[in-house]
């Protein structure tokens, strides 16, 4: 389970400060896929980074599997698999070396790591690439390696920031299918994406962020009732466009 409580983060820009996340609170249960949606600069990535402990919040807290990020950062990190929006790969390592390296970082025994590697390689169609150096991979292949890297330690909590970035339709479908599988296994998944059509198909609940605040939260049906719009795209148009225009 993930609990985010009154999480607040400011960034200093020159002499002024920008409020990136403003008293954000939400809860995601095991077996649930939560869509963290919002326009650029809404605070989605900052929120994910604070949950993992990469950024320190000004106030509030985040808890993962009962561990508070500020108190037990390593416990939180060991329970989380993170796919970041700007993930990279180690150019001089092979795909196998890189995945086993991360498994080691998360304390996975070698034999177990190799089993996980085989399973993920089959799932993301990485088997032919395992001996290839990461610098020789295409964008889509790198993204698949990144996903496998985030899941190599079989984390109970998965945070996906733009997980289908750089993937074609078929690649995206593999990710979507796997996220569903994670949900079925009872894992907690938070997805932050700009691809609203995917989010509609993928997420059980949504949190719509704007200017660091949670403006709307609920299942798709609940959001339809609240906004009167049928799709997330329409909701975005009606909810965020005037602000954009003003901005």
């Amino acid at each position: 389970m993930i609990t985010v409580h009154e999480l607040t983060k400011r960034f200093r820009v020159g002499s002024s400060q920008i409020l990136a996340v403003d008293r954000l609170s939400f809860v995601v249960q095991g077996g649930e896929v939560y869509g963290l949606l919002g326009p650029n600069g809404a605070g989605k990535t900052t929120t994910i980074r604070m949950i993992v402990g990469l950024l320190r919040p000004e106030s509030g807290y985040a808890e993962v599997a009962g561990y508070r990020t500020s108190e037990s950062p390593d416990d939180v990190k060991s329970h989380v698999g993170l796919v970041s929006a700007n993930d990279g790969v180690y150019h001089w390592l092979t795909v196998r070396e890189m995945l086993l390296f991360f498994a080691d970082l998360y304390g996975v025994p070698l034999r177990e790591a190799q089993d996980n590697l085989r399973m993920l390689a089959d799932l993301f169609d990485l088997t032919p690439l395992l001996s290839r150096r990461c610098s020789l991979l295409s964008t889509g292949q790198k993204q698949r390696v990144t996903l496998a890297r985030a899941l190599i330690h079989m984390p109970p909590v998965v945070l996906l920031d733009e997980p289908t970035r750089g993937l074609d339709v078929l690649g995206s479908q593999v990710v979507i299918d796997y996220v569903r599988r994670l949900r079925d296994e009872g894992k907690v998944v938070i997805v932050s994406t700009h691809r609203l059509d995917e989010a509609e198909r993928l997420c059980d609940r949504f949190g719509l962020l704007h200017q660091g605040q949670l403006r709307l939260e609920g299942t798709l049906d609940e959001l339809r009732t609240k906004t009167g719009c049928q799709t997330l795209v329409d909701m975005f148009r009606s909810f965020f466009q005037p602000v954009h225009a003003a901005g």
Binding site: M1, G30, G31, S78, E112, H153, P155, P156, G186
Partner: peptide, 15 residues
């Protein structure tokens, strides 16, 4: 959400 959902996020074995 299954009952064993919370069980699955108790502890990671390979810490």
């Amino acid at each position: 959400m299954s009952d064993d959902a919370n069980q699955s996020i108790e502890r990671v074995p390979g810490r």
